[in-house]
Write a protein that binds this DNA or RNA. Structure first.
Length: 278
DNA sequence: TGACAGGAAAATA
DNA sequence: TATTTTCCTGTC
């Protein structure tokens, strides 16, 4: 068990459940989450984060990077609150950070997210992991690692069918069959525009999913994924409407280099309001 | 039970 | 090039 001092206001719960990632297992006040080939048991107590690693050992630096703890939240929030009409949103969404996830799992996750609500996405990803992933025993229960590309290639047709991916199935098959880790890593190192262009070449990856991949797994904090919630938010907060392309462009222009953080805040804020309205 | 939720790609103009 | 239509599954 190791401990990390957290930045002021950080919320593990909000960060893991705000929608940027899916395969989180909550066991009481402990969250199980994969990092590389190991499973982390994470627990926050005030400004302290304790973590225990199952499988391979995990360094403190690796946990910090995963959870986006190296981001300068004071700077980010001060820049974003300079945007007229936005500080009220920040006040209600404090503690969320942008995680730095694995591009392979992130691409599949958001490919699965197309025209789907979060519980369904989670179900698909968990089934996939149970079918083809390695189980890791922890003191909090079993956790399946996300499958490697090679084990996904070995799935039978009936196993893939059992995921009930619908029209996403052909994208998934094509992606795993043509997946090349070197190529993805090369894309991750490209400048923003080229990255976006390359990601859009993947079948099943449109502008929203491309921006999710860039923001959550390729260190592009200015990416601005636009889904229905962001459209609602941008309209009600700033009067910005239009196509996904247009809202993406205007959101990036409005918020600048930390637009991705603004996006997470808006997403969390809009969903929270929607829940409270029920 | 039919309406509704949710993005990408193909079709159309 | 910009707008419209089609694609699937799950939930209520």
């Amino acid at each position: 068990m190791q401990k990390i001092n957290l930045p002021q206001g950080f919320s593990l719960e909000r960060t893991l459940t705000c929608g940027q990632t899916f395969r989180v297992l909550k066991k009481g006040d402990v969250f199980l989450y994969q990092n590389g080939g190991s499973v982390l048991a994470l627990k926050q107590e005030g400004n302290s984060l304790s973590f225990e690693s199952f499988g391979k050992e995990t360094s403190e630096d690796s946990v910090k990077s995963l959870l986006g703890l190296n981001d300068d939240f004071a700077l980010i929030n001060s820049e974003l609150s300079a945007v007229k009409g936005f500080s009220g949103v920040i006040d209600k969404t404090l503690g969320i950070s942008i995680m730095r996830q694995n591009p392979f799992e992130t691409t599949i996750s958001f490919m699965f997210s197309v025209q789907s609500a979060i519980p369904l996405i989670r179900k698909r990803l968990n089934s996939l992991s149970e079918i083809a992933g390695v189980p890791i025993e922890t003191t909090y229960g079993k956790f399946y690692l996300f499958p490697s590309s090679s084990s996904l290639r070995q799935l039978s047709d009936s196993e893939i069918k059992s995921l009930r991916l619908g029209f996403r199935e052909k994208w998934f098959k094509e992606f795993i069959m043509s997946y090349n880790e070197e190529k993805i890593m090369k894309i991750a190192d490209m400048p923003f525009e080229e990255k976006e262009k390359e990601l859009l070449k993947i079948k099943g990856v449109g502008i929203k999913v491309a921006h999710c991949i860039m923001l959550f797994s390729m260190n592009e904090l200015s990416a601005f994924p636009v889904d229905v919630w962001i459209k609602r938010g941008m309209e009600s907060l700033f009067g910005i409407t239009g196509t996904t392309q247009k809202v993406t462009r205007e959101g990036r222009k409005l918020f600048g280099r930390f637009a991705g953080y603004a996006q997470e805040y808006i997403y969390y804020y809009m969903r929270k309001i929607a829940k409270e309205g029920e």
